[in-house]
Design a binder for these strands. Structure first.
Lengths: 177, 177
DNA sequence: TTGCAAAATACGAACGGTCGTGCTAAAAAT
DNA sequence: ATTTTTAGCACGACCGTTCGTATTTTGCAA
Protein backbone atom coordinates (compact mmCIF):
# COMPACT_ATOMS: atom_id res chain seq x y z
CA UNK A 1 0.00 0.00 0.00
CA UNK A 2 2.77 2.41 0.92
CA UNK A 3 4.60 1.82 -2.33
CA UNK A 4 1.45 2.40 -4.34
CA UNK A 5 -0.06 5.47 -2.77
CA UNK A 6 2.73 6.80 -0.59
CA UNK A 7 3.42 6.80 3.12
CA UNK A 8 1.23 9.81 3.84
CA UNK A 9 -1.76 8.57 1.90
CA UNK A 10 -1.90 5.43 4.01
CA UNK A 11 -4.67 5.73 6.56
CA UNK A 12 -5.04 3.68 9.67
CA UNK A 13 -8.69 3.09 8.86
CA UNK A 14 -8.19 1.47 5.48
CA UNK A 15 -5.17 -0.39 6.77
CA UNK A 16 -7.31 -1.80 9.58
CA UNK A 17 -10.01 -2.86 7.13
CA UNK A 18 -7.40 -4.49 4.92
CA UNK A 19 -6.07 -6.54 7.81
CA UNK A 20 -9.48 -7.30 9.25
CA UNK A 21 -8.74 -5.49 12.46
CA UNK A 22 -10.40 -2.64 14.22
CA UNK A 23 -8.93 0.81 13.81
CA UNK A 24 -8.02 1.22 17.45
CA UNK A 25 -6.76 -2.35 17.70
CA UNK A 26 -4.29 -1.81 14.93
CA UNK A 27 -3.42 1.64 16.15
CA UNK A 28 -2.35 0.23 19.53
CA UNK A 29 0.58 -1.51 17.85
CA UNK A 30 2.01 1.74 16.58
CA UNK A 31 1.40 4.56 18.99
CA UNK A 32 1.28 7.06 16.14
CA UNK A 33 1.07 7.23 12.40
CA UNK A 34 4.64 8.45 12.34
CA UNK A 35 5.80 5.25 14.02
CA UNK A 36 3.75 3.23 11.57
CA UNK A 37 5.46 4.94 8.65
CA UNK A 38 8.89 4.35 10.13
CA UNK A 39 8.16 0.69 10.73
CA UNK A 40 6.96 0.35 7.15
CA UNK A 41 10.27 1.76 6.00
CA UNK A 42 12.14 -0.53 8.35
CA UNK A 43 10.29 -3.54 7.03
CA UNK A 44 10.93 -2.50 3.45
CA UNK A 45 14.56 -1.90 4.33
CA UNK A 46 15.16 -5.42 5.57
CA UNK A 47 13.34 -6.77 2.54
CA UNK A 48 15.58 -4.63 0.33
CA UNK A 49 18.68 -5.93 2.02
CA UNK A 50 17.53 -9.50 1.67
CA UNK A 51 16.52 -9.26 -1.97
CA UNK A 52 19.00 -6.78 -3.40
CA UNK A 53 22.12 -6.34 -1.32
CA UNK A 54 22.78 -9.73 0.27
CA UNK A 55 22.43 -11.79 -2.93
CA UNK A 56 24.75 -9.40 -4.71
CA UNK A 57 27.36 -9.71 -1.99
CA UNK A 58 27.31 -13.46 -2.48
CA UNK A 59 28.45 -13.17 -6.09
CA UNK A 60 32.11 -12.59 -6.91
CA UNK A 61 33.27 -9.05 -6.39
CA UNK A 62 33.80 -6.70 -9.32
CA UNK A 63 31.64 -6.40 -12.41
CA UNK A 64 29.63 -9.57 -11.72
CA UNK A 65 28.62 -8.17 -8.35
CA UNK A 66 27.77 -4.80 -9.82
CA UNK A 67 25.68 -6.43 -12.52
CA UNK A 68 23.90 -8.54 -9.92
CA UNK A 69 23.15 -5.47 -7.87
CA UNK A 70 21.66 -3.67 -10.85
CA UNK A 71 19.58 -6.64 -11.82
CA UNK A 72 18.41 -7.22 -8.26
CA UNK A 73 17.43 -3.59 -7.97
CA UNK A 74 15.36 -3.58 -11.13
CA UNK A 75 13.67 -6.78 -10.02
CA UNK A 76 13.03 -5.30 -6.61
CA UNK A 77 11.50 -2.13 -8.02
CA UNK A 78 9.19 -4.23 -10.14
CA UNK A 79 8.25 -6.66 -7.38
CA UNK A 80 6.19 -4.40 -5.17
CA UNK A 81 2.86 -3.42 -6.71
CA UNK A 82 3.69 0.26 -6.45
CA UNK A 83 7.36 0.00 -7.25
CA UNK A 84 10.24 1.06 -5.06
CA UNK A 85 8.91 2.51 -1.85
CA UNK A 86 12.14 4.38 -1.20
CA UNK A 87 11.86 6.39 -4.39
CA UNK A 88 8.24 7.19 -3.57
CA UNK A 89 9.05 8.14 -0.01
CA UNK A 90 12.09 10.17 -1.02
CA UNK A 91 10.12 12.56 -3.19
CA UNK A 92 7.31 12.60 -0.67
CA UNK A 93 9.46 13.53 2.30
CA UNK A 94 12.19 15.59 0.68
CA UNK A 95 10.50 18.78 1.86
CA UNK A 96 9.18 17.61 5.21
CA UNK A 97 10.73 17.43 8.61
CA UNK A 98 10.57 14.83 11.30
CA UNK A 99 11.54 11.34 12.24
CA UNK A 100 10.28 9.67 9.08
CA UNK A 101 12.44 11.83 6.87
CA UNK A 102 15.45 11.32 9.11
CA UNK A 103 15.03 7.57 9.02
CA UNK A 104 14.59 7.55 5.25
CA UNK A 105 17.65 9.69 4.79
CA UNK A 106 19.74 7.29 6.85
CA UNK A 107 18.53 4.41 4.70
CA UNK A 108 19.48 6.27 1.55
CA UNK A 109 22.94 7.00 2.89
CA UNK A 110 23.35 3.33 3.72
CA UNK A 111 22.39 2.44 0.18
CA UNK A 112 24.85 4.87 -1.36
CA UNK A 113 27.53 3.62 0.98
CA UNK A 114 26.74 0.15 -0.24
CA UNK A 115 27.23 1.29 -3.84
CA UNK A 116 30.51 2.87 -2.93
CA UNK A 117 31.84 -0.19 -1.17
CA UNK A 118 30.93 -2.36 -4.11
CA UNK A 119 32.87 0.02 -6.34
CA UNK A 120 35.85 -0.23 -4.01
CA UNK A 121 35.77 -4.00 -4.11
CA UNK A 122 35.57 -3.74 -7.88
CA UNK A 123 38.76 -1.71 -7.88
CA UNK A 124 40.45 -4.31 -5.71
CA UNK A 125 39.59 -7.13 -8.09
CA UNK A 126 40.96 -5.11 -10.95
CA UNK A 127 37.64 -4.89 -12.77
CA UNK A 128 37.44 -1.15 -12.33
CA UNK A 129 40.11 1.41 -12.97
CA UNK A 130 42.12 2.05 -9.80
CA UNK A 131 41.89 5.83 -9.94
CA UNK A 132 38.14 6.29 -10.29
CA UNK A 133 36.04 8.38 -7.93
CA UNK A 134 33.86 5.86 -6.10
CA UNK A 135 31.44 8.59 -5.03
CA UNK A 136 31.01 9.56 -8.65
CA UNK A 137 30.51 5.92 -9.53
CA UNK A 138 27.78 5.58 -6.92
CA UNK A 139 26.18 8.76 -8.19
CA UNK A 140 26.20 7.60 -11.79
CA UNK A 141 24.95 4.13 -10.98
CA UNK A 142 22.12 5.39 -8.83
CA UNK A 143 21.18 7.97 -11.47
CA UNK A 144 20.97 5.19 -14.00
CA UNK A 145 18.62 3.22 -11.79
CA UNK A 146 16.45 6.24 -11.07
CA UNK A 147 16.21 7.05 -14.75
CA UNK A 148 15.24 3.51 -15.54
CA UNK A 149 12.66 3.56 -12.81
CA UNK A 150 11.10 6.78 -14.05
CA UNK A 151 10.78 5.49 -17.58
CA UNK A 152 9.57 2.12 -16.43
CA UNK A 153 7.02 3.23 -13.86
CA UNK A 154 5.39 6.37 -15.10
CA UNK A 155 5.95 6.27 -18.81
CA UNK A 156 5.62 2.49 -18.84
CA UNK A 157 8.01 2.56 -21.75
CA UNK A 158 8.66 -0.90 -23.14
CA UNK A 159 12.10 0.17 -24.30
CA UNK A 160 13.21 0.94 -20.74
CA UNK A 161 15.00 -2.38 -20.39
CA UNK A 162 16.91 -1.85 -23.59
CA UNK A 163 17.79 1.73 -22.68
CA UNK A 164 18.95 0.63 -19.28
CA UNK A 165 21.25 -2.03 -20.68
CA UNK A 166 22.90 0.44 -23.01
CA UNK A 167 23.23 2.97 -20.24
CA UNK A 168 24.85 0.38 -18.02
CA UNK A 169 27.23 -0.60 -20.81
CA UNK A 170 28.27 3.01 -21.23
CA UNK A 171 28.88 3.28 -17.51
CA UNK A 172 31.04 0.16 -17.40
CA UNK A 173 32.86 1.28 -20.51
CA UNK A 174 33.94 4.37 -18.65
CA UNK A 175 34.80 2.90 -15.28
CA UNK A 176 36.13 -0.55 -16.07
CA UNK A 177 39.58 -1.44 -17.28
CA UNK B 1 2.61 24.39 -2.41
CA UNK B 2 2.15 21.61 -4.91
CA UNK B 3 5.87 21.23 -5.43
CA UNK B 4 6.48 21.07 -1.71
CA UNK B 5 3.83 18.73 -0.43
CA UNK B 6 2.47 17.14 -3.59
CA UNK B 7 -0.67 17.57 -5.64
CA UNK B 8 -2.80 15.34 -3.44
CA UNK B 9 -1.74 16.89 -0.17
CA UNK B 10 -2.96 20.26 -1.33
CA UNK B 11 -6.29 21.04 0.25
CA UNK B 12 -8.76 23.58 -0.94
CA UNK B 13 -9.13 24.91 2.58
CA UNK B 14 -5.49 25.77 3.15
CA UNK B 15 -5.21 27.06 -0.40
CA UNK B 16 -8.14 29.36 0.26
CA UNK B 17 -6.58 30.61 3.47
CA UNK B 18 -3.29 31.19 1.69
CA UNK B 19 -4.99 33.32 -0.96
CA UNK B 20 -7.27 35.09 1.50
CA UNK B 21 -10.37 33.72 -0.15
CA UNK B 22 -13.21 31.65 1.14
CA UNK B 23 -13.18 27.94 0.50
CA UNK B 24 -16.28 27.95 -1.65
CA UNK B 25 -15.19 31.07 -3.46
CA UNK B 26 -11.96 29.50 -4.55
CA UNK B 27 -13.60 26.19 -5.27
CA UNK B 28 -15.96 27.85 -7.74
CA UNK B 29 -13.04 28.57 -10.08
CA UNK B 30 -12.15 24.90 -10.38
CA UNK B 31 -15.24 22.73 -10.28
CA UNK B 32 -13.28 19.92 -8.64
CA UNK B 33 -10.01 19.19 -6.98
CA UNK B 34 -9.02 17.16 -10.01
CA UNK B 35 -9.40 20.22 -12.23
CA UNK B 36 -7.39 22.26 -9.76
CA UNK B 37 -4.57 19.76 -9.91
CA UNK B 38 -4.60 19.75 -13.69
CA UNK B 39 -4.52 23.53 -13.85
CA UNK B 40 -1.60 23.57 -11.43
CA UNK B 41 0.24 21.25 -13.78
CA UNK B 42 -0.71 23.40 -16.75
CA UNK B 43 0.57 26.53 -15.04
CA UNK B 44 3.79 24.80 -14.08
CA UNK B 45 4.09 23.54 -17.63
CA UNK B 46 3.99 26.95 -19.20
CA UNK B 47 6.45 28.20 -16.59
CA UNK B 48 8.71 25.29 -17.44
CA UNK B 49 8.54 26.07 -21.13
CA UNK B 50 9.30 29.71 -20.50
CA UNK B 51 12.21 29.15 -18.15
CA UNK B 52 13.77 25.97 -19.47
CA UNK B 53 12.84 25.16 -23.05
CA UNK B 54 12.41 28.50 -24.78
CA UNK B 55 15.68 30.07 -23.55
CA UNK B 56 17.53 26.94 -24.61
CA UNK B 57 16.04 27.06 -28.07
CA UNK B 58 17.34 30.61 -28.44
CA UNK B 59 20.93 29.49 -28.05
CA UNK B 60 22.80 27.94 -30.96
CA UNK B 61 21.91 24.35 -31.67
CA UNK B 62 24.21 21.54 -30.65
CA UNK B 63 26.20 21.24 -27.47
CA UNK B 64 25.63 24.87 -26.39
CA UNK B 65 21.90 24.28 -26.56
CA UNK B 66 22.14 21.01 -24.68
CA UNK B 67 24.27 22.65 -22.00
CA UNK B 68 21.80 25.49 -21.72
CA UNK B 69 18.95 23.04 -21.34
CA UNK B 70 20.73 21.19 -18.56
CA UNK B 71 21.60 24.37 -16.75
CA UNK B 72 18.10 25.74 -17.14
CA UNK B 73 16.65 22.53 -15.80
CA UNK B 74 18.82 22.51 -12.71
CA UNK B 75 17.98 26.15 -12.10
CA UNK B 76 14.31 25.40 -12.57
CA UNK B 77 14.34 22.51 -10.16
CA UNK B 78 15.96 24.72 -7.55
CA UNK B 79 13.70 27.71 -8.15
CA UNK B 80 10.44 26.38 -6.75
CA UNK B 81 10.49 25.96 -2.98
CA UNK B 82 9.66 22.28 -3.26
CA UNK B 83 11.71 21.55 -6.34
CA UNK B 84 10.46 20.20 -9.64
CA UNK B 85 6.75 19.63 -9.42
CA UNK B 86 6.83 17.18 -12.31
CA UNK B 87 9.16 14.81 -10.52
CA UNK B 88 7.00 15.01 -7.42
CA UNK B 89 3.80 14.48 -9.37
CA UNK B 90 5.30 11.67 -11.43
CA UNK B 91 6.03 9.50 -8.45
CA UNK B 92 2.78 10.51 -6.83
CA UNK B 93 0.58 9.56 -9.77
CA UNK B 94 2.51 6.71 -11.31
CA UNK B 95 0.12 4.23 -9.73
CA UNK B 96 -3.11 6.18 -9.98
CA UNK B 97 -5.64 6.53 -12.72
CA UNK B 98 -7.54 9.50 -14.02
CA UNK B 99 -7.23 12.78 -15.82
CA UNK B 100 -4.39 14.17 -13.71
CA UNK B 101 -2.15 11.24 -14.48
CA UNK B 102 -3.05 11.38 -18.16
CA UNK B 103 -2.22 15.06 -18.34
CA UNK B 104 1.05 14.59 -16.51
CA UNK B 105 2.02 11.73 -18.78
CA UNK B 106 1.43 13.89 -21.83
CA UNK B 107 3.63 16.60 -20.39
CA UNK B 108 6.38 14.11 -19.75
CA UNK B 109 6.16 12.81 -23.29
CA UNK B 110 6.43 16.36 -24.57
CA UNK B 111 9.52 16.89 -22.48
CA UNK B 112 11.19 13.73 -23.74
CA UNK B 113 10.27 14.68 -27.29
CA UNK B 114 11.94 17.99 -26.64
CA UNK B 115 15.10 16.24 -25.52
CA UNK B 116 15.01 14.08 -28.62
CA UNK B 117 14.60 17.01 -30.99
CA UNK B 118 17.48 18.83 -29.37
CA UNK B 119 19.60 15.76 -29.90
CA UNK B 120 18.57 15.68 -33.54
CA UNK B 121 19.51 19.31 -34.03
CA UNK B 122 22.80 18.50 -32.35
CA UNK B 123 23.43 15.82 -34.94
CA UNK B 124 22.64 18.25 -37.73
CA UNK B 125 25.15 20.79 -36.47
CA UNK B 126 27.77 18.09 -36.30
CA UNK B 127 28.24 18.36 -32.55
CA UNK B 128 26.90 14.88 -31.92
CA UNK B 129 27.80 11.69 -33.75
CA UNK B 130 25.46 11.12 -36.67
CA UNK B 131 24.61 7.53 -35.82
CA UNK B 132 23.54 7.90 -32.20
CA UNK B 133 20.18 6.76 -30.86
CA UNK B 134 18.36 9.96 -29.97
CA UNK B 135 15.93 8.07 -27.75
CA UNK B 136 18.84 6.66 -25.83
CA UNK B 137 20.33 10.13 -25.62
CA UNK B 138 17.10 11.51 -24.17
CA UNK B 139 16.96 8.62 -21.72
CA UNK B 140 20.53 9.17 -20.55
CA UNK B 141 20.17 12.92 -20.28
CA UNK B 142 16.95 12.70 -18.31
CA UNK B 143 18.44 10.03 -16.06
CA UNK B 144 21.31 12.34 -15.33
CA UNK B 145 18.95 15.13 -14.35
CA UNK B 146 16.84 12.84 -12.17
CA UNK B 147 19.92 11.54 -10.42
CA UNK B 148 21.13 15.04 -9.77
CA UNK B 149 17.77 16.02 -8.47
CA UNK B 150 17.60 13.09 -6.07
CA UNK B 151 21.00 13.86 -4.63
CA UNK B 152 20.34 17.54 -4.51
CA UNK B 153 16.87 17.48 -3.00
CA UNK B 154 16.70 14.65 -0.53
CA UNK B 155 20.30 14.03 0.36
CA UNK B 156 21.09 17.71 0.07
CA UNK B 157 24.55 16.65 -0.97
CA UNK B 158 26.84 19.60 -1.58
CA UNK B 159 28.83 17.59 -4.10
CA UNK B 160 25.77 17.18 -6.35
CA UNK B 161 26.86 19.98 -8.62
CA UNK B 162 30.29 18.53 -9.07
CA UNK B 163 28.94 15.05 -9.66
CA UNK B 164 26.50 16.36 -12.17
CA UNK B 165 29.16 18.16 -14.15
CA UNK B 166 31.27 15.04 -14.38
CA UNK B 167 28.29 12.97 -15.34
CA UNK B 168 27.42 15.43 -18.08
CA UNK B 169 31.00 15.39 -19.33
CA UNK B 170 30.89 11.61 -19.56
CA UNK B 171 27.65 11.80 -21.49
CA UNK B 172 29.02 14.30 -23.97
CA UNK B 173 32.21 12.31 -24.29
CA UNK B 174 30.16 9.39 -25.48
CA UNK B 175 27.72 11.15 -27.77
CA UNK B 176 29.70 14.03 -29.24
CA UNK B 177 32.20 13.91 -32.04
C1' DT C 1 -24.21 57.71 -22.30
C1' DT C 2 -27.56 55.36 -19.79
C1' DG C 3 -30.31 51.41 -18.04
C1' DC C 4 -30.71 46.81 -17.16
C1' DA C 5 -30.58 41.98 -17.55
C1' DA C 6 -27.23 38.45 -17.47
C1' DA C 7 -23.16 36.50 -16.16
C1' DA C 8 -19.33 36.07 -13.24
C1' DT C 9 -17.44 36.13 -8.75
C1' DA C 10 -17.46 35.80 -3.85
C1' DC C 11 -19.33 34.41 0.53
C1' DG C 12 -21.22 31.68 4.78
C1' DA C 13 -23.21 27.67 6.20
C1' DA C 14 -23.86 23.10 6.04
C1' DC C 15 -23.52 18.25 4.32
C1' DG C 16 -21.78 13.36 4.88
C1' DG C 17 -17.24 11.37 5.45
C1' DT C 18 -12.78 10.36 7.01
C1' DC C 19 -8.80 11.65 9.50
C1' DG C 20 -5.58 10.55 13.75
C1' DT C 21 -5.98 9.69 18.37
C1' DG C 22 -7.60 9.15 22.93
C1' DC C 23 -10.42 6.50 26.44
C1' DT C 24 -12.46 2.10 28.67
C1' DA C 25 -13.44 -2.53 28.83
C1' DA C 26 -13.53 -7.25 27.13
C1' DA C 27 -10.92 -11.02 25.44
C1' DA C 28 -6.75 -13.64 24.92
C1' DA C 29 -2.25 -15.07 25.96
C1' DT C 30 1.28 -15.75 29.19
C1' DA D 1 -3.11 -13.51 38.03
C1' DT D 2 -1.01 -10.42 35.20
C1' DT D 3 0.22 -8.68 30.92
C1' DT D 4 -0.79 -8.19 26.13
C1' DT D 5 -3.91 -7.67 22.47
C1' DT D 6 -8.19 -6.28 20.52
C1' DA D 7 -12.65 -3.93 20.16
C1' DG D 8 -16.13 -0.22 20.77
C1' DC D 9 -17.03 4.35 21.07
C1' DA D 10 -16.27 9.08 20.94
C1' DC D 11 -13.75 13.41 20.16
C1' DG D 12 -12.48 17.53 17.46
C1' DA D 13 -10.65 18.70 13.14
C1' DC D 14 -10.58 18.82 8.40
C1' DC D 15 -11.87 16.83 3.86
C1' DG D 16 -14.31 17.88 -0.96
C1' DT D 17 -18.52 19.45 -2.34
C1' DT D 18 -23.23 21.67 -2.65
C1' DC D 19 -26.50 25.26 -1.96
C1' DG D 20 -28.52 29.69 -1.56
C1' DT D 21 -27.34 34.30 -1.81
C1' DA D 22 -25.13 38.71 -1.87
C1' DT D 23 -21.93 41.64 -4.69
C1' DT D 24 -19.53 42.93 -8.67
C1' DT D 25 -18.58 42.97 -13.50
C1' DT D 26 -19.97 42.54 -18.20
C1' DG D 27 -22.75 42.86 -22.64
C1' DC D 28 -26.06 44.94 -25.01
C1' DA D 29 -30.35 47.67 -26.08
C1' DA D 30 -32.32 52.00 -25.82
Amino acid sequence: MASEIGLEAITIGTLADETGMSKSGLFAHFKSKENLQIEILAYAGSSFTAKVVTPALKTTAGIPRISALVENWTNWSGALPGGCIFVTASTEFSDRHGKVRDYLLKQQENWINCLRRIAESGIRTGDLKPDIDVDQFAYDLYSMLLGFYHYYKLLNDARSDNHQKKSFARLLEHYSL
